[in-house]
Design a protein around this nucleic acid. Structure first.
Lengths: 200, 200
DNA sequence: CGTCTATTTGAATGTACTCAAAAGCGGTGG
DNA sequence: CCACCGCTTTTGAGTACATTCAAATAGACG
């Protein structure tokens, strides 16, 4: 695989932001100056439960997962993040309090990170970014809201089918146990669901 | 009960906004001019599933509930809104598409509503409002995220106890069936949970 | 008091979990 | 190339969580 230049990664970010607000080239450079490139290998922790989430991360490439480990040692997946998504523990990041979840890479990943202070400063100096994050948050709010509705209104099997429907290739990219923990069921039960579906 | 003047309601909104950003008195009046007062009796529909959610609503006083009715006629409560909260179907409002849920008053309520176009205009003319809504969305995102985590990681009984813990007086203000539909369980099962708890 | 709705109770059923064991699937090293 | 290791998935049995349906009871309101 060919190594991408840092420049290329920052271009991803710029394009991402420009899909929501318009920027002149001076602004682009200025905005980029607030983000630091970070490369991670596969299976590396970006954040551990209990630590403070110091950065919000834009994913240039790779694949990450955030999950909570409960008192019985069971994992519950909150989010996955592919390229062109963001990932953090919002609560921990905004309040600078201990995180309730882990974030780990599933593949080698390249991120652009910004800390809270710089994010504030960036919004102060480029008010458009206020708009950018407002829109970003609205979108994620809509998605979360839908997921919550699915979770409280559908049985596990239907949630699984709905997920396959929305992300047809998810099976190839993820072990089943992670899909199960995202759906809020156990891997064993997901296996049974799959058996039931295959039987037709 | 004494009738509040409209002025008083707008003051609520202003105080609410000022708790997040600072405003001069000119801005206050200007912002208020974008909101229209709306009074509803108890049990009135503010939005029906399938209709387009034309407004975002700030609750000056009263009590509302948003819920989805599934194919079997079961209700699933997404949100409650008390005074000083906002309520809408965000997805429907932002995309101007048919709503996936109903919004109904549980008590007589007074709202200040703004439509999408005016909200855009307001943010354009008072960029600070961009910031206001960004912060508002971040807060609601954090809350939703926590609720999702609770839902996928705890059994019904624990979710009920956690809810009581967070909103100790909720039992007095809500029939159990609404609490159940918020928790994602049936009223019958909630009754059994309560019996189990009382036995100690 | 009668009516309507909400809550409780009980029994039967379905959904989902735990535990344990077996089978499958890469890697790694001999 | 095969044997072995570690991890994931499957299978099966038993149990717990949660739902449905139906009937009884309790509360709220005119």
């Amino acid at each position: 695989m060919q190594e991408q230049t840092p420049k290329r990664y920052y271009d991803n970010l710029v394009r991402h932001i420009e899909s929501r607000i318009s920027l002149d080239s001076e602004e682009k450079d200025y905005i980029c100056s607030f983000f630091r490139l970070r490369k991670l290998l596969s299976k590396q922790y970006l954040l551990a439960q209990g630590d403070i989430c110091r950065y919000d991360h834009y994913v240039c490439e790779g694949f990450l997962r955030s999950f909570y480990v409960d008192g019985n040692g069971n994992e519950h997946t909150l989010h996955f993040a592919l390229e062109d998504w963001w990932i953090s523990d919002l609560n921990s990041f905004l309040k600078q309090q201990p995180a309730s979840r882990n974030i780990i890479t599933l593949d080698a990943s390249v991120l652009l990170q910004i800390d809270l202070e710089n994010r504030e400063k960036l919004m102060e100096n480029v008010p458009k970014m206020e708009r950018f994050w407002r829109i970003l948050n609205e979108n994620s709010s809509m998605a979360q809201d839908q997921r919550l509705l699915d979770t409280i209104s559908m049985p596990g099997k239907d949630r699984y089918l709905a997920l396959l429907d929305r992300y047809p290739h998810i099976e190839q990219r993820l072990p089943q146990k992670h899909i199960a923990s995202f759906l809020g069921i156990t891997p064993v039960f997901l296996s049974q669901i799959r058996k039931g579906i295959a039987k037709r």
